[in-house]
Lab assay of single mutants.
Amino acid sequence: TIDDAFRAIERAIQAENEGRYREALKHFLDGGEMIVTAAEKEASQKVRNLLLHKGKEVLEWAEHLAEWILE
């Protein structure tokens, strides 16, 4: 659900702030994927587009974090 997705993102932010970057990455990926999944089930085109945009933002952040971890 969207609530689960945002809880995962909150955990990711907390982990990132505490320097637990790999854990943060996992939570960002989980949250982003949950948002995209919820968007695919959404009946309203406007809400679907907003959710897809937010999911994409979260997944892009996860990608940047992963690249930073690997440096």
Rank of each mutant, 00 (worst) to 15 (best):
R11D: 05
G32R: 07
V36E: 03
R48A: 05
G19Q: 05
A8I: 12
E60V: 04
R20F: 07
A39M: 10
E23T: 03
Q14F: 05
E67G: 11
K46Q: 11
H53Y: 07
L52Y: 06
A38R: 04
L65N: 00
E71K: 10
E63M: 12
E16D: 13
Y21C: 08
E23M: 03
L51F: 03
I9F: 07
V47D: 05
M34E: 03
A24F: 02
D30F: 12
K41T: 08
N49F: 07
I9M: 03
R7Q: 08
G19E: 01
H64T: 08
I2D: 01
V58G: 00
T1G: 11
K46T: 12
L65E: 01
E23C: 08
T1I: 11
W61D: 00
R7D: 05
E57Q: 15
A24N: 01
G31H: 05
W61I: 05
L50H: 10
E60G: 08
K46I: 13
R20I: 00
E23W: 02
A43P: 13
L59F: 12
K26D: 05
E60Y: 06
L50M: 13
N49Q: 08
I69G: 02
T37Y: 06
E10R: 15
W68L: 14
E40Y: 14
I9E: 01
E23D: 12
I35R: 01
N17D: 04
W68M: 10
R48L: 11
I2C: 09
I35W: 06
E42R: 03
M34V: 05
A39T: 03
V47L: 14
A15I: 02
I69Y: 07
F6L: 09
E67Y: 10
H53C: 14
A5W: 11
L51P: 01
V36W: 06
G19K: 02
K46A: 15
A24K: 01
L29I: 11
E33P: 02
A66R: 12
E63A: 11
L65S: 00
W68Y: 12
E18S: 06
L29H: 05
A15T: 02
R11C: 10
I9T: 00
A43K: 14
L25D: 00
R20W: 04
L51N: 00
E10F: 08
F28E: 00
H64D: 05
H64A: 09
V58E: 02
R20L: 05
K41C: 10
E60N: 06
E67T: 08
G55C: 11
L70C: 14
A38D: 01
H53W: 12
A15Y: 10
Q45I: 13
Y21K: 01
L25Q: 01
K54D: 03
Q45F: 04
N49T: 04
L65R: 00
V36N: 08
